[in-house]
Design a protein around this nucleic acid. Structure first.
Lengths: 187, 187
DNA sequence: CCAAAGATGTACAGATCAGTACAGGTTGTC
DNA sequence: GACAACCTGTACTGATCTGTACATCTTTGG
């Protein structure tokens, strides 16, 4: 008994927003791409912004679960998993439809810190940081909070540069830097 | 006798685009903010995109010269200057009108790699990376190309996280990571 | 002083934007 | 079969978008 039309809308809107951008995607374009009537859209969401927020929430869940799943495939120990985050990013960068991070782009289009879309993006990054801190903790590394932030800095930088220059080399360089930082944080 | 009206337009448009975003800023808004007639604007630039490109070129020059100037104020030796890049970023993050990096935002709004605005952004980051490589070389550190990229990853990550979460702590953490990476690259 | 160059304001074209009104169609359920 | 819930297409509003036309100033140089 899922609200399947609503889910279908969010799912398809997510793809279009990610591919074309939020501001650049009009509701008429969404109608054309999703084959869902505008009337239905506004029955489910009172505004475009609400729809965007719904797509961001879906993206957050999807991205994080796929991210963690892939990392756990690549390594079983926490330290290995910390490093595997960069391999996973590298694989992402090489996907043909890679278009940077949806949340970085969203916060670029909605800059004010108080904006719900900006907040949603900040939350997403916060959760990812906590995941890294958890792994650092389990790996018995020194100062997990600081290390987690530093590794996230490398990851966000890798996303930005991969988007600008293409390729996965930012992920490789970031992994090399991460190895040095993790080594320095070992007892 | 400089084309002062044109320069004035680019100067003021830069501020508005940085503050409000490219897509979100209409030409009518530029007329209101700059007090320059739309007719004049289209005499100097055949399209909005051309005007954006001009603002990006100005931003590139302005940002890099201010960046390097401040770094050279903070340190005289190359290794100290590499670290001072992060202090300079931290100062930038604390400015009241800090709104992330104009080029990251520009490439978020113009995603296709072939787009002139995207290219301009990639160029900007490329030049900054070369500056870091130059400093790493002068500091006699191992593998300057790799180190430069790794330091830039930290910088770009710091910009993104400072924009999302506010404050200058990303710059501080990035500097700590940079110190570890530089130490590991000493002979 | 006069002519060329540059700047201005207004008004508009044609497209697109978010969002709504309305009337009719489809679906499931008792 | 009937009612309710949902979905549809079309047409529209009023605002905004980029870009242009045109007639009128202001400035500048010789």
């Amino acid at each position: 008994m899922s609200a399947s039309k609503k889910d279908e809308l969010v799912e398809k809107a997510l793809k279009v927003f990610y591919r074309e951008g939020f501001h650049a995607t009009g509701m008429d374009k969404l109608v054309a791409e999703t084959k869902i009537s505008k009337t239905s859209m506004y029955k489910h969401f009172r505004s475009k912004e609400d729809l965007i927020l719904a797509t961001l929430k879906l993206r957050d869940e999807r991205f994080r679960s796929a991210f963690v799943k892939r990392i756990e495939e690549l390594a079983t120990d926490p330290k290995g998993q910390l490093l595997a985050t960069f391999d996973t990013l590298g694989e992402w960068f090489q996907e043909t439809d890679f278009q940077s991070c949806m949340f970085i782009k969203a916060s670029s289009e909605c800059q004010e810190a108080a904006h719900p879309i900006h907040k949603e993006s900040a939350d997403h990054k916060h959760i990812l940081r906590n995941y890294l801190e958890d792994l650092a903790q389990k790996a018995n590394l020194k100062n997990p909070p600081a290390l987690a932030t530093q590794l996230q800095l490398l990851q966000e930088g890798a996303i930005v540069l991969a988007h600008l220059h293409g390729g996965n080399s930012p992920a490789i360089e970031a992994k090399a830097a991460a190895e040095a930082l993790i080594k320095a944080a070992e007892v």
